[in-house]
Write a protein that binds this DNA or RNA. Structure first.
Lengths: 243, 243
DNA sequence: CGTCCGGTTGAAGAGATTCAATTGAAGTGG
DNA sequence: CCACTTCAATTGAATCTCTTCAACCGGACG
């Protein structure tokens, strides 16, 4: 993976900022969360944060960098199920009993991660209604993204599919900022794994989209040149992200 | 849709039986749930139970028949996101605030449905820990199926994909019975919508699978002739269904 | 300096779609 | 009981998207 120095490593503030999106979330809740966070760790690019089949007893949060949920086949095929960015739950967001993971979570860049004891987490949710509402909302949102992604894979052509993914990323990353020149630390290979395409085809479609003046995608930076036309080819409707 | 008279319409007992799967669920919890159920309704085949974009203020349960979550495009394309069978939540299982639905739920057969007031539901979950655990488990399970389905669409060929879907259905339907001669009330058209293929191609692949002695699929009945070989071509591993 | 990895290009082939036509079973009405 | 409709399933042929395989480029790095 090339040079992704464009990322401003964020502290726990990233998560808190994300939590801040919820108007109902009081300072009290934010600090509650901040105090919950236990040990932290940096994890190298490409490493697994959670292995497929592993039982994760703790709640796990992504603080810095990008990760992905992915499923690997014996024969080398790989499907990326979701991209995770700072503030996302790596596991345990449903607060239910620990479950055997049916997929791996891998670091796409160097990432910083923190773990929270499930008991303390559960206690905090019971104590703090606003926090609980936020967490359930986040879970519902992730499920919505999952469904939208599934639809994307099932129905759209390679061109539409890639356009859609870029719309999705722009929407999610740009919710608190302008949607141009986004830091998207993904190789074409990784895009291929996310889109269910071959790297070769990703490359060609990428050139096509660039040639049409829709986007630019170079060394970890996504530039959306014509947002509305891109949404047009993608058939993109961001409704699934609004609650 | 042809003749699906093979279905024994089940009462609320179906749901309760499904709940009974969870050992920890006490009679107390089951009856709690039974008393919660409010008005019922029968819904005709093909009708929408929940429309895309609708806000469903109540919790909604499927009691009889099959339904699907599906996303319809303007241009007529349609992707089925999940199949729902008796005992499944149509909406509201996360118990979070009501959310604008990002997809429709359609009846694939004639279905029977019941609605529960969200307030009473939430109260019941708080009161009854076992019930809450079951509900969260169900949500986690549905998410796992969703992920597995996404992987299926993204990585597998038409043949593998269809084999996988049949394995999935057999596993889920057969959990409380033998896995042969399953009632699967789906047209080839519907299969196509679920698999992201054209009906024509579904037909050909179906013939191929039948010719290979793997399955039989006729007038709403799925017969798995060679389960282990079918799992082989599908690359099926049912781990995502176990918790 | 050589190697490695991501990106790029070309050519050939497989898999799935598209369009169009036919079959067959179920349901309707005369 | 038979025409007539309807709709799912089936078949064929042409087309196209995407894959596969193989080679090459260029920057990063030991």
């Amino acid at each position: 993976m090339s040079d992704f120095s464009g990322y401003q490593p964020s502290s726990a503030a990233t998560l808190l900022a994300k939590l801040g999106v919820l108007p109902a979330l009081q300072d009290e809740e934010r600090s509650a969360l901040a105090t919950l966070a236990g040990e932290e760790a940096w994890i190298g690019e490409g490493r697994a944060i959670v292995a497929d089949g592993e039982i994760q007893p703790t709640v796990c949060l992504l603080l810095d960098g990008w990760a992905c949920r992915c499923k690997d086949f014996r024969d080398g095929r790989r499907q990326i199920i979701a991209f995770l960015t700072p503030g996302d739950f790596i596991c345990g967001d449903e607060s239910a009993a620990p479950r055997r993971s049916d997929h791996a979570v891998r670091a796409l860049t160097r990432t910083r991660v923190t773990w929270i004891s499930r008991d303390r987490w559960r206690a905090a949710l019971v104590r703090n209604e606003g926090l609980a509402a936020f967490v359930f909302g986040a879970a519902a949102r992730e499920a919505a993204i999952l469904r939208a992604w599934l639809v994307n894979l099932g129905q759209r052509s390679a061109r539409e599919r890639m356009a859609w993914l870029f719309c999705d990323l722009a929407q999610r990353l740009g919710e608190d900022g302008p949607s141009e020149n986004l830091a998207v630390p993904l190789s074409q290979q990784t895009l291929a794994h996310a889109l269910g395409l071959t790297p070769v085809h990703v490359n060609r479609v990428l050139q096509q989209l660039r040639g049409d003046g829709l986007i630019d995608f170079h060394s970890g930076t996504l530039t959306i040149r014509d947002p509305s036309r891109l949404r047009g080819v993608a058939g993109y409707d961001g409704a699934y992200l609004r609650n």
